[in-house]
């Protein structure tokens, strides 16, 4: 079933079909709540794409990702409620703030290797949470931020309604994936993957580690900020809990289920898990009883998730289908596995 879904995604024009499906979804949905759930899944997917840049492609486990999501949400929230800005300027500010903070945190944290980086970012995430909880003069502490502005439309569209907001989020999601696709195929994306393969090897290939890691980190925090700002505009009321480490863990789960370091993985993982959790309401509170072991099983047996598994399978199928052409296979396979490559 999932393989079928995946193979649909591979065919030319399939992306268009999937996009069309997303566009007609509000008409197919049986109630507004479903549209709302889908919109929130899209928001999380954008954040997970960000995590995929630094953790999936670049190989650095960033445990402060949820913190940057919260910073995006708080920036938009505080600017529109306390400072009285209107939505779009605050939205742009949220992106800038997360990018700049991402740069500052990145410059310090990315000098650290592997475990140190993960532990450091875990602590950064917690500091973000503590500041939101304790710095009452700025953040209102545990009370949270109310009266957050909704995005105003241009002309006839009113984004305060669920369905128009859904399309707004969809547009950002499409842009996010489009950019990610372009990035992953480019020399820059390959540079990130080379860093994931190993610091020393990357350096011996003339890659400036710091510059590229910081760039990947800033991109990822900006994605998180974008998602956070959209989230704030959607729920209109946020609190310190948005920075709870549990959200970072959720996103890691989405990423691993879908396929870490792949292009469609984050979307696949986020949407499927969000809907599974939705349909099994009792899971909401205890979802981690399943997610926890799921993470363990995934990293042991399927470290590249649904999408990665599928891509490997596709590749091997393509190889066995053309045994006769084996001699000239280089050209043939590079052509047929074009998608594989793009996703890799």
């Amino acid at each position: 079933m999932l393989f079928k879904l995946g193979s649909l995604f591979m065919k030319p024009g399939a992306k268009m079909a999937l996009l069309a499906l997303a566009i007609v979804f509000p008409a197919l949905a049986s109630n507004e709540y479903q549209v709302y759930v889908m919109a929130s899944a899209f928001v999380w997917a954008i954040a997970v794409y960000g995590l995929n840049i630094i953790t999936g492609y670049c190989g650095q486990l960033n445990l402060a990702h949820g913190g940057f999501f919260a910073i995006g949400a708080y920036t938009l929230g505080l600017l529109t409620s306390d400072a009285g800005w209107s939505f779009w300027p605050a939205f742009v500010a949220a992106l800038l703030v997360t990018a700049v903070l991402g740069f500052l945190v990145g410059v310090v944290s990315l000098r650290l290797k592997e475990h140190y980086f993960a532990i450091f970012t875990l602590c950064v995430g917690f500091i973000i949470y503590l500041l939101m909880d304790k710095w009452e003069e700025l953040t209102h502490g545990p009370v949270g931020v109310r009266d957050i502005a909704a995005p105003y439309g241009f002309g006839v569209v009113d984004f305060t309604e669920t369905t128009p907001f859904y399309y707004l989020v969809l547009a950002f999601l499409v842009f996010s994936i489009w950019f990610m696709g372009r990035l992953s195929r480019s020399l820059l994306g390959r540079t990130f993957i080379a860093i994931r393969n190993g610091d020393e090897l990357a350096q011996s290939l003339g890659i400036n580690l710091m510059r590229n890691k910081v760039l990947a980190f800033v991109l990822s925090t900006t994605y998180a900020g974008l998602a956070g700002a959209l989230y704030a505009g959607m729920v209109r009321f946020i609190g310190p809990e948005e920075a709870n480490i549990i959200h970072t863990f959720d996103m890691i789960t989405y990423l691993l289920v879908g396929g870490i370091g792949t292009l469609t993985g984050p979307l696949l993982g986020t949407i499927s898990i969000v809907w599974i959790t939705q349909s099994l309401q009792f899971l909401e509170e205890y979802r981690m009883i399943l997610f926890g072991p799921l993470l363990v099983v995934l990293v042991i047996f399927f470290p590249r998730g649904i999408n990665g598994q599928f891509l490997t399978w596709m590749h091997h199928k393509a190889q066995t289908l053309s045994p006769a052409k084996k001699k000239k296979s280089s050209k043939v396979q590079t052509a047929t596995s074009g998608e594989v490559k793009n996703n890799a």
Binding site: L61, E114, L256, V296, V299
Partner: peptide, 28 residues
């Protein structure tokens, strides 16, 4: 033990999985 030869990111994620499981179980 099964992850001893995996890339370094995997055991960290697995540890997080164990953490989530234990917490949710106790909470249940």
């Amino acid at each position: 033990h099964p992850l001893r030869n995996s890339p370094p990111i995997h055991d960290k994620i697995a540890a997080i999985g164990v953490l989530l499981f234990l917490e949710a179980t106790i909470q249940m």
